[in-house]
């Protein structure tokens, strides 16, 4: 094990998975409680389209993933507001449109670029030093903003109308939260892959909800499950030479199933 930790790529993978697991699990709590998880899937596919566009025109993939990911939030929010529709409708349209864009850009590439598919299926063991620095910086930004607005995010997750009526700028904070969800997805894209990053956002938080009785305990449990799943994914991926993204998701799904079966939540009665 100690020998394993001496490898630079394992150190980077463990650090990246710690940050990604933590950030997605923390943001995922609000996404799950607010019923906003679908934006995670929409952003992931849009960010992947950004990556393919970047490979096509020779731009840094991370930058384009960021631009496309955040654009998803802005455009779908605008369309939702303008068209007075439920959020899952514009996200659903954007989700498929950006996936079509990704296929389109891959088709336009003159030469085959197999590394593109790394972003689709994830490869945490190939995270570079510069990518790790970006992941670290954005993770700090996301966690710092969550810390600043924790009580407001908590309030709007519980009851947005009431928060707005109490004088909290709920709509603006809700938009900020969407951007943070999008950002979390983008930083996890290369490690877990566009197909599976949605799971990292949803599963730890959903499993934690089975055990938690208050916001703090849900947040802590979600973070533990997120980080533990990510680390297990890295280690199992290295030991058994299996895909890291899939391993992370399968492990966290196992924790979710265990939580549903054994948390005792279903046996809890109602106070009369």
């Amino acid at each position: 094990m100690l020998e394993l930790l001496s490898y630079g790529f394992i150190q980077r993978a463990l650090l990246a998975s710690l940050l990604i697991g933590l950030v997605c699990a923390v943001i995922g709590v609000f996404a799950v409680l607010r019923g906003m998880t679908f934006i995670g899937a929409g952003t992931a596919h849009s960010a992947f389209a950004g990556v393919t566009f970047a490979f096509w025109i020779g731009f840094p993939p991370f930058l384009m993933a960021l631009v496309f990911g955040l654009s998803t939030v802005w455009i779908t929010s605008y369309v939702q507001e303008k068209g007075k529709m439920k959020p899952d409708v514009p996200i659903g349209v954007f989700y498929t449109f950006t996936m079509a864009l990704a296929i389109f850009f891959i088709g336009l590439m003159k030469t085959s670029r197999p590394e593109v598919f790394g972003y689709l299926f994830g490869s945490i063991l190939s995270v570079t030093q510069s990518e790790l620095i970006v992941i670290f910086a954005l993770s700090v930004v996301i966690l710092f903003i969550v810390g600043l607005f924790f009580k407001e995010f908590h309030f709007i997750s519980f009851d947005q109308d009431m928060a707005e009526a109490s004088g909290i700028p709920a709509k603006k904070l809700s938009f900020l939260l969407l951007n943070l969800i999008s950002l979390a997805v983008v930083i996890a894209l290369k490690s877990v892959g566009a197909m599976l990053v949605f799971a990292l956002l949803v599963i730890p938080a959903a499993a934690a909800q089975q055990w938690a009785t208050n916001m703090r305990s849900m947040m802590i449990t979600s973070a533990i499950i997120g980080v533990a799943s990510s680390w297990m994914g890295v280690l199992l991926s290295y030991w058994f030479d299996v895909p890291s993204g899939a391993t992370i998701v399968m492990f966290s799904a196992g924790v979710f199933l265990f939580s549903v079966l054994f948390s005792g939540r279903q046996r809890m009665g109602q106070t009369s």
Partner: peptide, 30 residues
């Protein structure tokens, strides 16, 4: 404001204290 409210999801992780404290958030400020 006491809204016309459906019953809250029984699994929503929030205590009575946390709900009552939300009433202070507007006055406490960002």
């Amino acid at each position: 404001y006491l809204p016309q409210k459906e019953r809250t999801d029984p699994n929503y992780p929030i205590t009575i204290w946390e709900v009552a404290m939300m009433g202070r958030y507007g006055a406490i400020g960002l």
